[in-house]
């Protein structure tokens, strides 16, 4: 059963079609990667789903809800988690407090004037942090953390309200290649365990092919391919598109094929 169902999504900016008639589903428990060269419309598509942008046409169904026209805040409340391309955490707070903030909001306690915030939902926060392997750093402040660690904190924050769907915008951007694989494997493990579906965009093809259960490819605002990693890898049109941006795709694809073989 589809967790998220996107159909006929279109958006243009001043006459430029950033997104034309894009439709796809995210099935329960799958890690769906959205790839495509720069300017393909990935971010626009993402922002139409998470409520930052209102599409011109089309619908975004999440369970029984239509997400179009809802604010990011409301969409989050419905059970959609987010991580950002460039991490956004609360720098003046500790790792644990970052997670506690999400929990406080989830329990609708953010207007409480009396209890001490740092003592609320502490257990649950530590649970989430151990899930992402950050429990040792729980008391460190976010503005002194390494970038890779912040990504893990974000993951814990995004899981705080037990989402059914996680939207991850370039989850490994800015990280060292080895860390990328680790982070994505960590993510994959967690979501599998909890039955969360993931829609993510990614530049690093290693990460995509290693973890995605399915891939959709955008180019110039249109969806040009959809299928398993193997299908997409062998799609000549996709190879064509990526050739324009450089030959890495084919190189990676063949390297992977070689490894598979």
């Amino acid at each position: 059963m589809a967790v998220l169902s996107v159909s006929g999504l279109s958006k243009s900016f001043g006459g430029v079609h950033a997104l034309s008639d894009v439709s796809f589903d995210v099935e329960a428990g799958e890690l769906l990667a959205m790839i495509g060269p720069n300017g393909a419309g990935k971010s626009t598509c993402f922002n139409c789903i998470n409520g930052q942008l209102k599409p011109d046409l089309g619908s975004v169904r999440f369970g029984e809800h239509d997400l179009v026209g809802r604010s990011p805040r409301q969409i989050w409340r419905l059970g959609v988690g987010r991580t950002f391309q460039i991490t956004a955490t609360f720098g003046s707070m500790t790792v644990a407090e970052n997670v506690q903030m999400a929990l406080i909001s989830h329990h609708r306690r953010s207007r409480a004037l009396w209890p001490l915030a740092s003592s609320l939902y502490m257990e649950r926060a530590h649970e989430l942090l151990s899930a992402v392997g950050m429990q040792d750093q729980a008391e460190r402040r976010c503005n002194v953390l390494a970038y890779g660690d912040l990504k893990q904190v974000e993951l814990a924050v995004a899981m705080a309200h037990e989402p059914r769907l996680l939207l991850m915008d370039e989850p490994t951007a800015g990280m060292a290649p080895t860390e990328r694989i680790e982070l994505m494997e960590l993510t994959a493990g967690i979501v599998r365990e909890r039955g969360i579906s993931v829609l993510f965009t990614e530049h690093d093809m290693d990460v995509v092919f290693a973890n995605a259960t399915r891939i959709i490819v955008l180019n110039r605002g249109r969806m040009v391919a959809e299928g398993s990693p193997a299908d997409v890898r062998n799609d000549s049109m996709v190879q064509e598109i990526y050739l324009g941006a450089g030959s890495t795709f084919r190189a990676q694809a063949s390297a992977l094929e070689a490894a598979d073989a």
Binding site: E97, Q100, I104, S110, L113, W114, L116
Partner: peptide, 9 residues
């Protein structure tokens, strides 16, 4: 130091 203040920060 209550949730409200934390949320503001």
């Amino acid at each position: 130091y209550a949730p409200f203040g934390y949320t503001l920060r």
